[in-house]
Design a binder for these strands. Structure first.
Lengths: 238, 238
DNA sequence: CGCATTATTGATCGTCTTCAAGAGTCGTGG
DNA sequence: CCACGACTCTTGAAGACGATCAATAATGCG
């Protein structure tokens, strides 16, 4: 018997995510697949986008991780959010969009141009959902930094990341790739690397978190201060 | 001699702001003025929008302040941002938008429907700029909570508010209305009311901040950790 | 005027930072 | 294959910033 096959032998995380968000039709998927061939790669630690730059193209993240960061005058750094496969970069409705923050590649990143969504209802839905989800995650990040303890911040952020990777089909039985250093996790959670280290160790001892060699998993349990309902459900009807 | 008059004898802050953002033409201003007549008012402490609700209408804030809040499971509260006169509520490109957070009126608030921007280039520009500015302020809020001290958070937030009110023409020589309690300021800065009290007193002693009876002013000076360039300049060309 | 809310003050405690040093890991080149 | 250097992780000790608890003073509203 021939098993039904997915639309591609190699599953593309970005396509998985956008299909989930916008219920793309075959022609829309084909548009993305066409763009895969003109993918661009960014080397580790290089800027994908610089604050103040004009944004001529909208990009679709294909692989790798990136971090939207802000550097304060004294050199301290805050990671505003992470950009993961299937995420869009540069969505906005200004005529001459300007990047409001710098996005840096963590490890090697590949991107392709995001297809034009005009006259493409599925893509339009997917982009709108993507933007709404990103905004919801900014809210989550604010609540994390403002009202959670170190332990809660780290656990909550990792759960959010896991949920997002899952949307792109990037979470397996044994967990997911987590290519962060503890220092980056500190920059994202507003903590010091030293305290992140101690807190991560504690979460490991609690059995909540496994994380070694860039691979992590986190057990299903609800944190005390956040319900962590699926974000996708939070920003759409039903 | 007859002096040139502003377009209305009573200057409407919301119109001032949108004109500044989008360079509206007379017909677009007229559209807003028409909507002023169907303004709705929300009483203090009532919800303008509830998380999870469908958003049938886009609103334009005319007067008063509102706070976008998230309440965590243990009852602690985080104010994500403030909504001020001239701000838009419900901008997004989803077909069936859902509120990602609750917005509560601080004091009495008046709103009117935001005119449809289709075929209205000025309004389109203004709405796009408004959204970009709001996003930039979310980034600012994250950096504040993640990387600034109590003193810096309060000073930086108040400067941001002052800058925003100024765009709507709501800052006078002697300062601006600041209808917040110290508790709300605590919920916005991720601090406790007690510590906000002490920090505000300190800022007063430093001569940085005047604030009494709901009226405040803050002296021009750059905070150590943030440059606080005008946000409007940050999200647009030149 | 009376009550509820808000602001203020003091004392103590805990979380997280800071500083500093050492161990582990990884990639690179001899 | 091993040695080296650069990160990254880990650990300890001390200190600071802000939280917490509790009580009192002001405000402001009805």
């Amino acid at each position: 018997m021939i098993q039904p096959q997915p639309h591609r032998s190699v599953v593309e995380p970005a396509i998985t995510r956008l299909v989930a968000l916008g219920d793309l039709d075959a022609s829309e998927i084909a548009l993305i697949e066409a763009n895969l061939r003109v993918a661009r790669t960014v080397r580790p630690h290089n800027d994908i986008l610089r604050e103040g730059d004009a944004i001529p193209t909208r990009w679709l993240m294909l692989s790798g991780w990136a971090a939207r960061t802000r550097v304060l005058e004294d050199g301290s750094r805050q990671i505003l959010n992470f950009t993961l496969p299937g995420d869009l970069i540069g969505l906005c409705d200004q005529e001459h969009p300007v990047a409001a923050s710098t996005i840096i590649a963590i490890g090697k990143v590949t991107l392709c141009p995001a297809p034009d969504a005009r006259e493409r209802p599925g893509l339009k839905r997917a982009y709108a959902m993507s933007r709404a989800i990103e905004e919801a995650h900014l809210f989550d990040q604010i609540a994390r930094l403002g009202r959670m303890s170190a332990e809660e911040r780290i656990e909550d952020l990792l759960r959010e990341i896991c949920e997002r990777l899952d949307l792109a089909g990037l979470v397996a039985q044994d967990g997911f790739d987590l290519p962060l250093t503890q220092e980056m996790l500190a920059d994202a959670t507003g903590l010091t690397p030293v305290h992140v280290n101690r807190t991560v160790q504690h979460l490991r001892k609690l059995g909540v978190l496994q994380w070694s060699h860039g691979r992590a998993s986190i057990v299903a349990r609800r944190s005390r201060r956040s319900e962590r309902r699926l974000t996708l459900a939070r920003v759409s009807q039903r």
